[in-house]
Every structure is written in C-alpha cells, then in structure tokens.
Design a protein around this nucleic acid. Structure first.
Lengths: 346, 346
DNA sequence: GTGAAAGCGCTAACAC
DNA sequence: GTGTTAGCGCTTTCAC
C-alpha cells in the first residue's frame, strides 16, 4: 500500500509538502503550482489512497457517526437510516452501525463509541433504561448525541420526532369531518414509558374533548401484538350498534395496527370503508398498497434522519457541537387520504 | 482521554507491558499475575478506553465491514443488514454503511473502502454497471467482497441469494395442488439484466411445462411500477373466462406486487381467494397483515446477512479470506400458506 | 518477566 | 515556499 512517504520520494519533496497538497491546503500561500503538480502526478501514478485511519488518529476526529438501533428490521428505522446516510455523505461523514437485537449490554455500545472516537451518535427508539446507562458516559466523554423517537421522556439531549400530536389531530379531524363521532383509538402499549403511544393517545383524547365527543372517547391498547389487537378489535366491533362506544371509525396509532384492524373487520363481514373507517400512522410502503389503501399520517422518516445528522454536525465548519441542551425538535406530518375512510353511514 | 502511557505511569510499568496485558496476551508466559493485576486496576481506575483507531493503524486491519446498498429504505435490505450486524457483532466487527440513493459515482465508494482499510465489503442489489467499476479495484487492493442478490450474473465473487427457483416452484406447485391450471406470473422488469426477475420467471415456465401446462404459460411484467402492474392485472382479469390465458391464479414475483394484484382484483369485484388465488414472494412484515393474509414464499433475509459476513470472515481465526472463487450460495426458502390462495372454483 | 525503541501513516508547529 | 521535527496512541521486535 503506497504512503505519502513514497509520494514524497517520487516527487522529490518532503512528507509535509505532500500532506499539504493532498489536503488542498496547497492554495493557502504555500506550495508552488509547480510542486503541487509534481506531487499530484506522483500520487495518481502510484495509485495512492489516503489512510483515513491514520488520519483520524492524528487529528483525533473520526468523521464517523454511530447509528444505534434496537431493531433494525423495521421500515421506519431503515428510512431514517437512509436519510442519515445521505446527509452524512454530503459532509463526508460515515454511518457506523451499532446495536443489538435485545437491549443486552448497552454498556458495550458506549465502549465501542469511545473506542472508535465517534464524532457523534444517533439513537433510535432507545429505551429509558438504556439511556440511563448511556448518558453519564456520553457526557463524560463529550460525545454529541441526538435521540430519534425515543421511548421515554429525556433530558440532556436533542430529541427529534414527528409531530405526533398534530398527526393524531389531522386523523381525528378528518374522521370528524366525514361525520364520524364514535371514534375509537387503538394505541400501542399501556406502559407508562411508551412515550409515543402515550402521546398519541393523549392527543386523541384532547381532540375528542375539543369536539365535544367526550362520551365516545375509547382508548384501546394493542400491546404490539397482532392477536391481542385482533381480539380488542373484535370486542369493539361486537358492541351493540347503539352503544356510544361502538365505533364507526377507528384511528390507529400505526399502519401495522390499522392493517390488523381492517383485516379483522373484513373477517367479521364489516366492510371498510363503507361500514367502518380506519386510519393509520406512518405511511409505510405497504400502506398505499393495502386493501383498501390506507388513509394515514405520513411521517418524514428520511428527513428525521437527515435532520439528526445535521444537528450532530451543526458546529462551525462541520465540527460536531457539544450540546448540553435538552430540546425537542418536531417535524411536520401530512395526512394522506386514501380509501380506508369514508363518510359515516347514514 | 487516558492512554496506555498514563496507565503505564500509574502502574509503574512500561507501555509494552500494558499493551500485553490489555490484549490478554498476558497469559502467554509473559506478565506475572501481580503486574497484570496492577495494570488492570490502573486501567479501570483511570477509566481507560482503548483507541481502536490507533490500534487499527498499527495493525493495518480495521475490523470494519462495508455494507454497500443502493436503496436502503426497503424492508428486505433492512433485514439483511440486521442479520449482518448481529453476526459482525459476534466477531467484534462493525458494519459501516456505504451507499448512495442513485448509483452516482461507485468510484467514490471504492475509494472510501480503501481509505478506511475495510476488512471486507457486502454489496446488496448491486447493478452490473456498478460492479464493473468495483471489481478491478477490489481485486487490486484485495478487499474481500460478497454479493447479495445482485442484479446481474457475476464472476469473481461469492454471491448469496435465496433459492429463487425452489421458491417459485413451491408457489406454483401449491397452486397446482389446489387445482389451478391457468396460472399467470407477474414478474419485475423485462430488462435482460434483472437477474432475479428473470430467474423467477424462468422457473415458473419450467414448472408449468413439467406439469403440462404449457398453453397456460403467461408471463407479465410489472416493471416495478404500481400503475403498470395494475393495468396489466386488469388486462389479465378482463380476458374472457374461457381463454386459456385468463388466470384463476396469479403468482407474483414479490409481496408488493401481490398486494397490487389483489387490490386490483378486489376493485374489479373479483374476490380473493374465492375467485382468484394470489401468491407473493418475500414474506414482508406486511404480508401476514394483508387483507387477505398473503400466501407467500419466505426468504431468510436475516440469515442471508449473517451468512454474508461469515463468508467474509471465514479465514482461520477471523482473518478475512481473499477469495478469487466465483461461487453462488443459495439459501433455502419456505412456503407460507395463508389466506390468499384457495382451491380453484370449478 | 519486563522495558526500550522503532515503527504504523499521517498532521501540524516551527524553522529556514 | 518548503523541509525538519515532533508527535497521535498503539503494537511488536529484541535486548536485558
């Protein structure tokens, strides 16, 4: 592997000169155009490729960003990652994957971040437990971190997420505008620390109250479980038609949940959207292809990713900024009306 | 940041000794248990974290694997990545993301691989064009590479993919066993170099021939486009019922395609699976939730990922092996029967 | 058993 | 303008 020493020898200059030329700092009143040429020629002739590892060790910065993920199989995570990669590339940074399937040993993750002198770290869907481990270390070693859609309330970091409240509002108001009043909400897990589920459920309740629909408020927990969601849906739809809690519309906290709800309704012989309107949340690739196509709230996952990277790198000339600030940054969402919602029957 | 020099000072030994202890080579007839203890204590007290960058530069190896992806938003890619990460972690290796949205500048990718002295690289869905750029360089710098689901036939690398042929066979034979004879196949793009689409379509034709169903062979191209797939589906289902080409079952080259086909059929008032059976391929998360749940061929994406890194690392004691060999490694698939297929309506 | 010293490939003061 | 020199933090040979 050819090094700058080789180039220096071939071009008849010193290592330092080569370094200057290669780093484009040549223009800065230093190297003469003549030697610059010679060095560049030597470099290309020799097929030189710089050693980023060595470079990183001398400068102390690694131009690598860690992407810490709990379960990377899901489309939203993949899309956030895609956005992050794109942005990182723009700045000549890299994404290094961190993560385990379970939350086993968050300690080891931190160690790795430090050992590789990561310039920053993005964590997505982090649990409060994991973050509690993470935080002291992060602070001690001053690694900038931004959180994406974390599961619990956090202090000490920027948190980037979609506008959950507005998203739910858009969905519910869409249903109300179609004449629905008996609108139920199927959310995620009941656990206190499920920040996102919780927030969305609360937003639902608030909108319902604003609309004077208090008596129809009906929050159901799917518990992240298909069978359970199905059972709850059945229960809901089996209520007597005149019950204030027998919904004519079901807003779901996610597209996947909406799919289960629709499928269950279909199996019960209830037609969507004619007899039951359903909304999702996320706008996954499969949402548009569903049967019927899902009316849903679209999250800008890619932009969440790129924003995360930008926040990490937003110091002057790309220096990662150390941020003690605890800030929540909320990205806009859009309602996508497709075919799983319709005006309420009669 | 504390270094081994600090530890050495604190423990009253030399840097070399510290290095030995820290690398567990202490047992090898060298360091006395006593000094080992002292060093370890000093290390933990000081909160030492090794500098992997420096380590990599001295050893020349980076323990980083590149994951080169064209479009990382898709679930299959995310799942392959998840499998790769898991396996890499097991060996204390890392995944570094490479890639662009479009195929812009594959040259730059290579440069990055070399600059970071990557221990190996996994490319997924690589186009022949990109690979043609990649290959000479890869060879020159002896970077081990494995291909996953690449788009064209390749020489010079291991190629890991699911057993496409068997997958299609399973689907078609399942349909045949349900009494279907008029089975159409909707595949991807018509382009010659769409290896996967092509292979699956060929397998379909072969099975149909084996079953003496030649006159019902009917390959349709969806062209990766929802609108086009929809139009083709409409055309197919609008053929007169007695036409040998009016299918009673449609096998699709992917789940996403199957979803479009089912939705289109539903819109036309044709009931799935009662009047039309449809099969997918992939078994995405959404397949089980579809309406109706998809009968499909499940690909072991995670295992593809883990196999890829295992092949990259399969030298003795984790040394990446340089492989000139051109080999195709085929992973088994499974038929998952759900509710989008049913016996043919006489 | 342990330490001194020479690197790895690069950057960056500082001198000329 | 260019070269010398001293690192960066670590591994590894070789001598004691």
């Amino acid at each position: 592997m050819v090094t700058i020493t080789d180039i220096a020898a071939k071009a008849g200059v010193s290592k330092a000169t080569v370094s200057y030329v290669l780093n484009e700092r040549a223009t800065a009143v230093r190297i003469s155009e003549d030697t610059r040429q010679r060095v560049m020629e030597a470099a290309t002739e020799l097929g030189y490729r710089r050693n980023e590892l060595a470079r990183a060790v001398t400068t102390g910065k690694s131009r690598m960003l860690g992407f810490w993920v709990m379960e990377s199989q899901h489309e939203p995570v993949a899309r956030v990652l895609a956005g992050a990669m794109k942005e990182a590339n723009l700045h000549d940074y890299f994404i290094k994957m961190l993560g385990f399937d379970n939350e086993a040993n968050p300690q080891r993750i931190i160690e790795q971040c430090i050992e590789w002198r990561l310039a920053g770290i993005i964590t997505i869907h982090a649990s409060p437990v994991a973050l509690d481990h993470l935080h002291p270390q992060i602070e001690r070693f001053e690694i900038p971190m931004v959180l994406v859609d974390c599961q619990g309330p956090r202090t000490g970091s920027i948190h980037i997420t979609s506008d959950q409240i507005q998203g739910v509002r858009l969905a519910i108001e869409h249903l109300v505008s179609l004449g629905h009043r008996k609108i139920a909400y199927v959310t995620g897990r009941a656990a206190e620390n499920e920040l996102l589920s919780h927030r969305r459920a609360e937003a639902y309740q608030q909108v319902m109250q604003e609309r004077g629909l208090d008596e129809h408020i009906n929050v159901v927990y799917g518990n992240w479980d298909t069978a359970h969601t199905e059972a709850e849906t059945r229960r809901l739809l089996s209520l007597p038609q005149d019950s204030p809690l027998r919904p004519t519309a079901i807003a779901c906290w996610s597209d996947l949940t909406a799919m289960v709800v629709i499928r269950t309704a279909t199996q019960m012989g209830i037609r969507v959207p004619e007899e039951l309107s359903v909304t999702g949340f996320d706008d996954l690739a499969g949402a548009a292809l569903y049967n019927p196509p899902l009316t849903t709230v679209s999250q800008a996952f890619e932009e969440i990713g790129s924003t995360a990277v930008r926040r990490l790198l937003n110091g002057p000339n790309g220096t990662p900024v150390k941020q003690k600030q605890c800030r929540e940054e909320v990205l806009p969402v859009r309602l996508i009306v497709r075919a799983s919602t319709a005006p309420v029957a009669n």
